[in-house]
């Protein structure tokens, strides 16, 4: 992938940031309004996907290296699990222990205890997973040499 024309690149530079912002909004306000970890995470991933499409894999992988993404993937899932396990001290697995200590006021951002934190963890996981899936599938190139078909990843890692 070598990227597209200057017009596309310039517009992408603006829109990708906006898309990223929108995704972050959905994640952080997911417990009050539409959105949540999964939907927000998908949109966060979309901002990376649009960058891959416009700039090509090489440029994007600088923004989010593959090894880092693979780590973040596991870390997001682990964070979610740890949040749930900490609930065991509050009585039950998944129990909302923060809300028990500090209830907060309904319809405020800080009111739902572990739910926003869980949303962030899920968003992290979903975002990097989807990014990795797209990137790996998109950057593979098949070359045919006689009978033999080779796979080659576009970027060098």
């Amino acid at each position: 992938m070598t990227g597209m024309t200057v017009i596309v690149k310039t517009i992408t530079r603006w829109t990708a940031a906006l898309i990223f912002l929108y995704g972050a909004y959905l994640v952080l306000y997911g417990h009050l309004s539409v959105g949540g970890g999964f939907a927000g995470g998908i949109i966060l991933a979309c901002s990376y996907v649009i960058m891959i499409l416009a700039y090509g894999g090489k440029e994007t992988i600088h923004a989010l290296p593959k090894a880092v993404a693979a780590r973040l993937d596991s870390i997001g899932a682990l964070a979610f699990l740890i949040l749930a396990s900490l609930g065991m001290f509050g009585g039950f697995f998944f129990s909302n222990w923060i809300r028990d200590i500090w209830p907060g006021q309904q319809f405020r951002v800080f009111s739902a205890g572990i739910i926003p934190l869980a949303n962030i963890a899920i968003a992290l996981k979903v975002c990097v997973s989807l990014f990795l899936i797209f990137f790996i599938l998109a950057s593979l190139r098949m070359t045919r040499k006689g009978d033999k078909i080779e796979f080659r990843s576009e970027e060098v890692d």
Binding site: A77, L78, L81, A84, S85, F93
Partner: peptide, 18 residues
């Protein structure tokens, strides 16, 4: 009881990190 699910799930994400 939930540990029967949580332990392998957690390890399932820690082990690929190694």
């Amino acid at each position: 009881l939930p540990l029967a699910i949580a332990i392998p799930l957690g390890m399932g994400f820690i082990l690929p990190l190694l």
